[in-house]
Simulated scan of single mutants.
Amino acid sequence: MTQNLLGRTVMVVPTYNEASNLAWIVARLRKAQPDVHVLVVDDGSPDGTGKIADELAESDDHVHVLHRTEKAGLGAAYVHGFKVALEQGYDVIGEMDADGSHQPEQLQRLIDALAAGADLVIGSRWVPGGSIVNWPKSREALSRGGNLYVRLLLGIRVKDATAGFRLFRRSTLETIDLDTVRSTGYVFQTDMAYRTLSHGMSVVEVPIDFIERQRGDSKMSKDVATESLKLITRWGLAERRDRLRRRFSGSRHA
Rank of each mutant, 00 (worst) to 15 (best):
Q3G: 01
V41D: 02
R241Q: 14
T15V: 07
W235A: 11
L148R: 14
A163I: 04
R215S: 09
V203W: 02
S131Q: 10
R8F: 05
L197F: 04
E87H: 04
A113R: 00
V203G: 02
L167A: 11
F210D: 10
V84L: 15
I232Q: 07
E105Q: 02
D54F: 15
Q103T: 07
Q3K: 07
L152Q: 10
D160P: 13
V13L: 09
K71V: 15
Q88W: 09
Q214E: 11
M11S: 09
V84A: 10
T226E: 15
I176N: 04
A118W: 00
E87G: 12
R169I: 04
S249H: 12
P128N: 02
R247P: 08
M201E: 08
R234S: 13
A116E: 03
A163T: 06
S171Q: 10
I132M: 14
A238H: 11
K83T: 11
A141R: 08
R213D: 04
E18M: 13
A53Y: 14
T162Y: 13
K83L: 07
F248Y: 13
R157F: 14
L110T: 00
V133I: 11
D209K: 09
H67K: 15
A141H: 05
L39D: 08
V38G: 03
P104K: 00
S124N: 01
K219M: 08
K31E: 15
A53K: 13
R241E: 12
A225E: 14
A98D: 02
D60W: 12
N17H: 11
D160E: 09
G216Y: 07
D91K: 06
G123F: 00
P14G: 06
V26D: 05
P14C: 05
M1G: 14
P46H: 06
L5V: 10
S45I: 09
W135A: 05
D61M: 05
V63C: 12
H80W: 08
S218K: 06
G185D: 10
D177P: 09
N17F: 06
Q103D: 12
V36A: 09
R213F: 05
E205H: 08
L22T: 03
A116C: 02
G129E: 01
G7F: 05
V38M: 04
T175D: 07
F188N: 02
K159H: 10
Q108F: 09
G100I: 02
L148Y: 14
V187T: 14
